[in-house]
Structure formats: C-alpha cells, structure tokens
Amino acid sequence: MQFAAPRSASEAAALLQAEPGDARVLAGGSDLLVQMKSGALRPDLLVDIKRIPGLDAITAEDGGFRLGAAVPGARLGEHAGVRALWPGVVEAVELIGSTQVQGRATVAGNLCNASPAADAVPALVAADAVARVFGPRGERDCPVSDIPVGPGRNSLAKGEFVASILLPARPKRAADAYLRFIPRTEMDIAVASAGVSLVLDEDGRCTRARIALGAVGPKVLLAEEAAHCLIGTKLEDAALAAMAEACSALASPIDDKRGTVAFRKQVVGVLAKRAAKIAQDRAGGTK
C-alpha cells in the first residue's frame, strides 16, 4: 500500500487518477481506518488531503461558510458564525461517533462515506449545501444530495474528491434542526433521522421548508411533499401530522439488526415533526 500526502489539490487528483488499483482519500480517517483495520478495505493507495493548503479552513463566503474538506467536525461547534447560521448542521456533526471521533472526523468524509445513516448528511441536504468537487478536469459544484448514491457508494468519478462544502447564506427568521433516533443516548448510529430547515415570514408562517430523511432508504431522501405540507402554515398540529405522514410514506427502509421497517417508517415522521418544531423555535416562530 502506498501513502501520499500531496501539497496541492491538482497533485491529489493526479495521484488518485493514476492509481490503477483501489485509491482512497484520507481526511480524518474515522471511517476509512476502521474499515482497513477490520479487513473490509485494503486500498492500494491512500491520499491524505490534510496538507493541501486551504482545506483545513472555515471561510466566510457570500453570507455563508465554506468548510474545507479536512476540517474536523469539532471545529464547527467552536465556530460561532457556523453555529449561529446552521445550528442543525452543527448539532448533526456533534452526534458523529464520540467527542474523540469528532476531533478527527470531517463533514466531507461523512458525506463521501455514503452511509445511509450518516448524521451530517440529512442536515446538509436540508441546508441545501453544495459540495465543490475537485478532479483531473478541475472544479465543479454539486448539490450534496447527489454525492451519495447508495450504501458505501458515491458519485465521484475516478480522480475526484470533495474539496469543500458550502453552507449557503439564508434570510432572517430561518433556522434548521436535526434529530436522530438511537436506542441509547450516544455512541450509536441512527436508526432513523431527519434534518429540517425552515424559513418563516414576519407572521411566523413557513415560506420555505426542506426536509431530509436518513437511514430510511439506500441514501438520504429529500422529502419534498412533506416539506410542502408546512408551507403557509404556522406548524399547527394538523400540518405537522400531515408532514409526518408524508415522511413515513416516502421512507423505504429495510428490516435489519438496528430496526424494523414499521418502526423506522413511524419514527422518521416523529423525528421530522420534532425537528421542525425545534427549527421553528430557533427561527423565532414560536415567539
């Protein structure tokens, strides 16, 4: 196995492109190294992107924030601006693994690892975040929801890697929230999850909503019909119930050791409902 720590994005892309065998991108390593230790993965090449200038930074951009692909999750929680603008994304990242794991794990890695249960991903999709992909032919921007395509599989082409993620600007009276269900209280993996992002008008009426569901399909699901149930409402019980029902209807989970189809379908609606209330509260909609 070869290990490379290039100093530029183009060098990284070239290395990934040139490797005929299994080439993997190493950022925090909290998924990759675990899979290697268990014997599930035996890469021929590891490309460590942590030494590429700029990838370790959170920068303000057009009222939003660009997160470098090598920024460990713990730094989001320490960043007052990100915390204030996208609290739901931050709370999702702060559920990944444990405090120690968050010191290494990156948001981009969580996205590219393409686990249907990844905590950051529903929150990022709800936030309408955009991944900047760097590859042999240069940069391209891609909605985060298009990166994962199925369990453990992403849409990146040979030689490509995610260099950063943009959390966009958003208007006043807007907020997001993320909730997951686990049988315990920490150190666990989502059985179902929901990220909700809302924009309210001056009267507290919902004008825009994005709802993303995790662990109830092969990849994160954008629940557009469910979101529509909230538009024009003040999240009254009936609206929330309709929204939860739409989430449950959309969900297409499997039975496995972590939960049943029936359980996941019901609980994902409950989580979306509760996350929506939190987002509404954060956006000032209950005042």
Binding site: T185, E186, D256
Partner: peptide
C-alpha cells in the same frame, strides 16, 4: 445476540451489541 438466516452473528461489536453508555 442477533443471528441471521445464515446462522452468522449479525452484531459482533459494541456498535450493534448495545450495552448501556453512561449517559443512558
């Protein structure tokens, strides 16, 4: 202990064999 149809143990690790954590 969760066994699959194939008779193999499905959860041989502390992620899916869930002992309580302190915050529980």
């Amino acid at each position: 202990y969760i066994y699959g149809e194939d008779g193999r143990l499905q959860n041989p690790g502390f992620l899916d064999y869930r002992i309580p954590v302190a915050s529980d």
